[in-house]
Measured scan of single mutants.
Amino acid sequence: MGSVRTNRYSIVSSEEDGMKLATMAVANGFGNGKSKVHTRQQCRSRFVKKDGHCNVQFINVGEKGQRYLADIFTTCVDIRWRWMLVIFCLAFVLSWLFFGCVFWLIALLHGDLDTDYKDDDDKSKVSKACVSEVNSFTAAFLFSIETQTTIGYGFRCVTDECPIAVFMVVFQSIVGCIIDAFIIGAVMAKMAKPKKRNETLVFSHNAVIAMRDGKLCLMWRVGNLRKSHLVEAHVRAQLLKSRITSEGEYIPLDQIDINVGFDSGIDRIFLVSPITIVHEIDEDSPLYDLSKQDIDNADFEIVVILEGMVEATAMTTQCRSSYLANEILWGHRYEPVLFEEKHYYKVDYSRFHKTYEVPNTPLCSARDLAEKKYILSNANSFCYENEVALTSKEEEEDSENGVPESTSTDSPPGIDLHNQASVPLEPRPLRRESEIGSRR
């Protein structure tokens, strides 16, 4: 089982795998120059863009038009607004034209077009017409509009002379109601789609790998820009990579689940303020055997998904993003964004995407760390350097704002901070800030 798991979770494809794949392509008759073999020097295209759209195009789909027309309502909801407006206008105009032609044909076959009612006051002739005051196609078209929109100006009306005319008036009224219901329903469904809710759900630009509770963890940050909550919010993550099976089958995008606390339930989050999602790199993680150097040379993509129900409509929305291997910062942490004021908490989104480097973060893999092949620094050293990194950030910001350097908390000259780390230190809580992250 261990060997199978290692093969499945191998992220960085070796040169031997690339040569094996190329040999397979030639042997199977696919070596026509169009096949692409992804190596370390040639990274694959992003499968999920940063804005959440999937970078996929469908080609050679059989009976595409028929399949889309069979699900016309979903098609109308998914198309762009400009095409929705075109369909909206065409549906009414074509129905008016169709029934206008029908009423014109009825008048033509009944002989109503030969009668001039402007110079004739004989009401008996008017009563013999199928539709009064309809003696041309324009008049028939206007009567069709008046019937379907129930305008009723009063000059044109159907008589009991022709039952077919009466039937067409009733039929057009029913068709008009159906068109109204369909168009209004599609427009309302399109307006109520929770897709735009994703514009106020954000992911951090970069993911980070750092120590948390004595273990290497992959972390990324999510935030909600609205005050309205995302009900039943939960997160998922998958690692996408290519691999070759033991039988020699090439899988271009193998999807591997990344555990973010599904078993323990901590994948469900209360997204009021930005939260750091934590994936513990343990023996079940696809990143277990990867060191910093392996991450730098790897070719994979981590897709992160945030799902929840919109509070206003109770409709489920899904926000997506992805991180390539070069977008994962090893040995970094996110800057705090949640600050405790006197009577409330304040979230500073200008710090949302910012990170700071944490010294002495192990550069080895989580496996080597678990097997004690890498000796961690003293816990006080880690905490102290973590505090120094934050303090230096604040000093830089104070210097930019014009604060005198004498007010900063610099260490005395001639003292090495790293050498001082081995000395037991008193706890130094942050002056006014605390970061709330997901705790395992």
Rank of each mutant, 00 (worst) to 15 (best):
G2F: 02
S3K: 03
S3P: 05
N7F: 04
R8E: 14
Y9W: 10
S10K: 05
S10M: 10
V12Y: 07
S13H: 06
G18Q: 07
G18A: 05
L21E: 13
A22Q: 12
A27P: 12
F30V: 15
F30L: 14
N32R: 10
K34A: 14
S35I: 08
K36I: 11
T39Y: 05
Q41G: 12
R44Y: 09
S45W: 05
S45P: 08
V48I: 09
K50Y: 02
K50Q: 14
G52F: 01
N55M: 07
N55I: 03
N55P: 09
V56E: 06
V56A: 13
Q57T: 09
Q57P: 03
V61E: 14
E63G: 12
G65M: 15
Q66C: 15
Y68M: 11
L69R: 11
A70M: 07
D71T: 13
F73D: 15
T75C: 04
V77N: 07
I79K: 09
I79M: 05
R82Q: 09
V86Q: 15
F88Q: 06
C89P: 11
C89E: 02
F92A: 12
V93I: 12
S95N: 07
W96C: 12
F98R: 00
G100R: 00
F103L: 03
I106D: 01
I106H: 01
A107F: 00
A107S: 05
L108N: 15
H110Q: 02
D116T: 15
D116P: 14
D119M: 01
D119V: 01
D120G: 01
D120E: 00
D121Q: 15
D122H: 00
D122P: 00
K128F: 11
C130S: 02
V134C: 05
T138E: 04
A140P: 01
L142W: 02
S144D: 01
I145Y: 13
T147N: 01
Q148Y: 01
G152V: 02
V158F: 02
T159C: 02
T159Y: 03
D160E: 09
D160N: 02
C162F: 01
C162P: 02
P163E: 05
P163G: 13
F167A: 11
F167H: 00
V169P: 01
V170G: 03
V170Y: 03
V170F: 06
S173L: 15
S173I: 15
G176A: 05
C177P: 08
C177G: 10
C177N: 05
D180S: 15
A181W: 15
A181D: 03
F182V: 04
I183E: 05
I184N: 04
G185R: 02
A189K: 15
K190Y: 03
K190E: 06
A192R: 03
A192T: 11
P194A: 07
K195N: 08
N198C: 15
E199C: 12
L201C: 12
V202P: 04
V202D: 08
V202E: 13
F203C: 06
S204A: 09
H205R: 13
N206V: 07
V208P: 00
I209E: 02
A210Y: 06
A210R: 05
C217H: 08
M219T: 03
M219Q: 12
N224H: 09
R226A: 07
K227W: 07
K227D: 08
S228T: 14
S228G: 07
L230P: 08
E232N: 13
A233C: 08
V235C: 11
A237D: 03
S242K: 15
T245D: 11
S246E: 11
G248P: 04
E249H: 12
I251C: 13
I256N: 05
N259H: 09
V260M: 03
G261S: 08
S264P: 04
S264D: 15
G265H: 10
D267P: 06
R268P: 05
I269S: 08
F270M: 07
F270C: 09
V272Q: 08
V272A: 14
S273H: 12
S273V: 12
P274G: 12
I275K: 06
I275E: 12
I281W: 01
D282F: 03
E283P: 11
D284M: 13
S285M: 00
L287P: 02
L287F: 09
Y288G: 01
S291C: 09
S291K: 09
Q293Y: 05
Q293K: 04
F300Y: 00
G308F: 07
T313L: 10
T313V: 09
M315P: 11
Y323I: 08
L324E: 03
A325H: 11
N326L: 03
I328P: 01
L329W: 02
W330G: 00
G331R: 00
H332G: 01
H332K: 04
V337F: 06
E340L: 06
E341M: 05
Y344S: 09
Y345G: 02
Y345W: 07
K346F: 04
K346P: 00
V347H: 04
V347I: 11
K354T: 14
Y356V: 15
V358D: 11
P362I: 02
A366S: 09
R367S: 03
Y374F: 13
Y374S: 15
L376T: 14
L376V: 12
N378F: 04
N380Y: 04
F382G: 06
Y384I: 15
N386K: 06
V388R: 12
A389T: 09
S392A: 14
K393C: 10
S399R: 10
P404C: 12
E405P: 07
T407H: 10
S411I: 07
G414V: 11
G414K: 07
G414Q: 14
I415Q: 13
L417C: 12
N419R: 08
N419L: 12
N419D: 13
A421G: 10
V423F: 05
L425K: 07
E426M: 07
R428Y: 13
R428E: 15
L430T: 11
R432Y: 13
E433Y: 07
E435Q: 10
E435V: 11
I436D: 15
